[in-house]
Design a protein around this nucleic acid. Structure first.
Lengths: 222, 222
DNA sequence: ACGAAGTTGATACATTTGTATCATGTTGAA
DNA sequence: TTCAACATGATACAAATGTATCAACTTCGT
């Protein structure tokens, strides 16, 4: 599996910047990131267990030696990949939610915002749901993986609370938790139904119904 | 990891039933089930990737040979374990929901029912959430794992729809989907917070709020 | 008691994997 | 050009793993 003939380093003769000008994206850093992206792609498609030095190198089109060169150990490689995942996710959230910050929003806009922020962007293999679920399971077994993910989740929660508050929720914290749990659970179910192709419509409808219900009829203890 | 000195078959001299009386729980079947339970325990605690013949044998206190004797291949073993998982889950659902069938239920009872049915019972290592999530990810990559899980999910959905209908929901199908997704998502988050010990109270509260909101304020298209 | 079916013992072997080693190439600043 | 840092080549090796093999033991119906 994952046999990829292109072992021959596709960028063997890439021109380098002068060392003094090396910013955070100079080669080395770039190759490192290519490896991390390869790791995430493998995690999303075949699971953490399928992450091996050889598979990562093949997936990234990098020499095998690069994996042990850039990462002291396999666990470090996976850890850094998850960190990268969290960072990328936060960036995507901020970028997407920035497109909605200035508008006044009603429930429909909230649905669109949430959908674009949490759902659509996660089609990116770097931030896919499958990878996220793998990360969560990894955390359950190795709690030291938790911090980066926590930051990402806090950012998500914060954005959702803001959205809920703007559309008139009287329990923004609680409603944000509920909405986020719903989204995760819904997406998880989709993973178990690989044949479904038309889940987005239903998800939007259910999400709209959920949000409407939450902001409308909810004052148990005023 | 998982080193367990008790290789010596703990039931080497178990008395056997006459073969003619062997029902579905005769020895052989029993050992097989012990192996499947061992598989599920390993899946829940260390993931599918940690399922090896040797680890399963050690966990079950069975001889290594038993694993290759009862299962043609490792994949068959895992497949059967997941089948077993789904069957056990359905049994637990039916048993727990049976305790509520005769009563008239309001939202509070629905919360208690759902909590006992879906949440509490899943503390059993045979039917834990971690194992279920592993199963879902396995399905995402190997769709042939899906059927048994589908049956389990349908049973859950059916029960939830019934509960929602009984407490006055006007969109039982939709609300059942929402509640189920919420439960899954909430539990998934708990996995990423191994330090939390007091999530049950919050989950019950959020679940109650969600259900109340759903049955109260939801008639967008009557 | 006997024999066939069921179950276990003991061992082997090719693969895959993580990681180490030492030498070779490549780049950029001096 | 020259040198030191950066990066890759090529290969090695012990450990873990899936699975096969063949012999020995247990159990139970006859």
């Amino acid at each position: 599996m994952l046999k990829n003939g292109s072992q021959t380093s596709a960028r063997g003769s890439a021109k380098r910047q002068p060392r003094s000008q090396r910013g955070p994206y100079a080669p080395g850093v770039q190759r490192r990131q290519e490896l991390l992206e390869a790791v995430l792609r493998i995690v999303a498609s075949h699971g953490v267990a399928a992450v091996t030095h050889r598979a990562v190198a093949a997936e990234a089109g990098a020499p095998l030696r690069a994996t042990t060169y850039y990462f002291a150990t396999k666990e470090a490689m996976i850890r850094d990949a998850f960190r990268f995942f969290a960072e990328q996710s936060i960036l995507q959230i901020d970028e997407a939610s920035g497109r909605y910050l200035d508008r006044d929003v009603g429930p429909e806009d909230a649905v669109a915002l949430i959908f674009e922020t949490v759902v659509k962007e996660s089609r990116n293999p770097n931030t896919s749901w499958a990878a996220e679920f793998e990360l969560v399971l990894a955390i359950a077994r190795e709690p030291s993986f938790a911090p980066e993910y926590r930051a990402f989740q806090d950012r998500l929660d914060e954005g959702l609370q803001l959205a809920m508050r703007r559309i008139g929720s009287r329990h923004p914290a609680r409603d944000a938790r509920i909405v986020l749990a719903f989204l995760r659970g819904f997406e998880l179910e989709q993973l178990s139904r690989p044949e479904r192709k038309t889940w987005q419509r239903r998800m939007k409808a259910d999400l709209a119904g959920l949000i409407t219900a939450l902001v409308a009829g909810s004052d148990p203890k005023p």
